[in-house]
Design a protein around this nucleic acid. Sequence first.
RNA 1: GCCGCGGUGGCGGAAUUGGUAUACGCAUACGACUCAAAAUCGUACGGAGUAAUCCAUGAGAGUUCAAGUCUCUCCCGCGGCACCA
Length: 726
Amino acid sequence: MTPYDHSKIEKKWQKYWESKKIFRASDDIKKKKFYSLIEFPYPSGDGLHVGHIRSNTAMDIISHKRRMEGYNVLYPIGWDAFGLPTENYAIKTGIQPAVVTKKNTDTFRRQLKALGFSFDWSREINTTDPKYYKWTQWIFLQFLKKGLAYKKKMAINWCPKCLIGLANEEVVDGGCERCGTPVVQKEKEQWMLAITKYADRLDKDLDDVDFLEKIKIQQRNWIGKSEGAEIEFSLKGDSRKIKVFTTRPDTIFGVTYIALSADHELASLATKGLKAINPATKEEIPVMVTDYVLSDYGTGAVMAVPAHDERDADFAKKHNLPIKEIVLQDKKEMTEKFGKVVTKYKLRDWIFSRQRYWGEPIPVVHCENCGIVPVPEKDLPLKLPKVKNYKPTETGESPLAEISKWVNTKCPNCKGKARRETDTMPNWAGSSWYYLRYVDPKNKKAFASRVNLDHWTPVDWYNGGMEHTTLHLLYSRFWHKFLFDLGLVPTSEPYQKRTSHGLILAKGGAKMSKSVGNVVNPDSIVKAVGADALRVYEMFMGPFDQHIAWDENGIVGTRRFIEKVWKLREKVAAGDKVTIHKTIKKVSEDIENMKFNTAISSLMIAVNDLEKSTSVSRADYSTLLQLFAPFAPHVCEELWVNLGNKKSIFLSTWPSYDSSKITDSVVKVMVQVNGKVRASFEVSPETDEESLKKIALDMPEVKKWTEGKEIKKIISVKGRLVSIVI
RNA sequence: GCCGCGGUGGCGGAAUUGGUAUACGCAUACGACUCAAAAUCGUACGGAGUAAUCCAUGAGAGUUCAAGUCUCUCCCGCGGCACCA
């Protein structure tokens, strides 16, 4: 008997699948399609994380099952390669970000291939490739054309020591991430995308997609839709009015003052004793400036009801303002009488500028005569020039600002003097539409052809991290809706189904990070026990949607299991009898519900059973291999071919089960007396309730408890139990 | 403070959705094989008790013939948001 040599087997089949193009998606529009998607990785210098393997394996399993069910499956991969870690590494070492990215993607590609994922590698994309970001820039220009991209003066985080602008993510406890210096705010003009214009649809359309409920809740909370009333308060001795937003117009009789945010236009007057009129009571009430009213939510002014609101009450007590008890009124009636219905959102427009090098250049020029002029489409991509120094400039501009050869240009409109925009896009830009590029990755005329978009979109199943729910997931839904409105994509939602995985944490429950030195490198594990054992282990270690701490000790268990499957082939004898119907059902259903851990345990149970019998039918063994193949593709392919099959196991048909053979011929029925199990017996599952009662009452173990007692009640459940109350 | 997820053996976890709690796996102990070890196979493995039995799913109450599962009140851990009117 040949021993199980994982290295040899895994390399052999990886080579075979690639050369035979087994996992390539075809653009045959006649075949039913399935588009499965994982979040494309950021190729960090740390290499592949065991967490990547967890989520990739999950969608790999689902993709394999769909292929075997006859679908034309698209399971693509690419690199979300713009971003800060690479840029910071470039600042430290002087090595070009493009060079670092190439090195890191090569490592990731090698590691992913070593795990045997069934990606369609022919569609690999990279957001930093000018052929890709040409279209990111093109989409930005469409936003600009429609007035949804605009410039706004606003405060950015500024480190006075490092002299750089910081992203919110780089500010830790109010200090600079690197040097700890307290961050100050600096006014700067920023590009914005008007995502708030889509707030209502981003909320409402969640009704039509199959996202996990917790994902919908988190998006809805983030969008923060709130319906209320806008009410105008007139002022004493001033013709102007103060507009307030409230969700409780029914409390208007309890309003005893108006609270303004510090930068409200009337705030300076308020300090001079400005009075407003409560439209319900006609009483004069003071207008106060407070620090608890936000200027950027609602109208920046609040009608204060101390009897109802805790913050209003605190403020009223502190400033000796009256507190008036409320008699409750009807919301609708008060709104109609004193104001109008309005809807507000917590969602803010998206700050789209970064004063950074390693991102897509924003394709506009600033002309002395014409103002902001888009770079003509024929000149896209606007390529990122090479620079010597990747540090942002002392003024907070991106490093691009220092390349005068690049910055100084001609206006495409009037041919006059113009300067290029030096801001770049955030790393969320490229990932907002990447799933569209996969359907037609080499297209030079459009981001994707309409035929391919019609065939492949929407994505049928998208799995990713909960940490992307409010940023990436929301941003990409926004971009997609915008493209839909332009008639460029066929559906209004990009993803039909969204699920999420739990993180793999380091031992002890901390996050894995390079600086702590607790990152697990999969290479040594693949070498020692094989990709199959690692894949199966990551699926077996715990529920997929829950976080779990990494623990390598259990991996010998899945390795042993694979060896059992390997050895089982010695028992294979002719015969077509399929006895593992239950396993087929369980594994099929568990995969659909992402309950991979119990799918594997049911496979283990089946193998333990088959091991005990003297021989295993060829049909049962084949079925077992087919069920296990999505989890452990290499070893199953090897064993499948050893059985004499000519074609890949992934070209075979997913096993079906006979539901009449699922039910056992005998079931164990338990007998409870006063809620405690006292006996059990075996009968046919068809035995009716009355017969069950009779059998139970005749049992000596039961009589022992019922003898001489009055039986008050007997409950009998077919195929389950008899419960006697005495 | 609000929202979401979770708490079950020494450990990771399972439980047909209200029906034998601890499946499957890891670790451990003993046995077989071996000169020996590893590997493998077998047996045991929540706690107490000689046993009959009793107790145990974060804590406490409730509903029910029956609760890990449903209801209420708490405690703890993780994640997100946070003066949102």
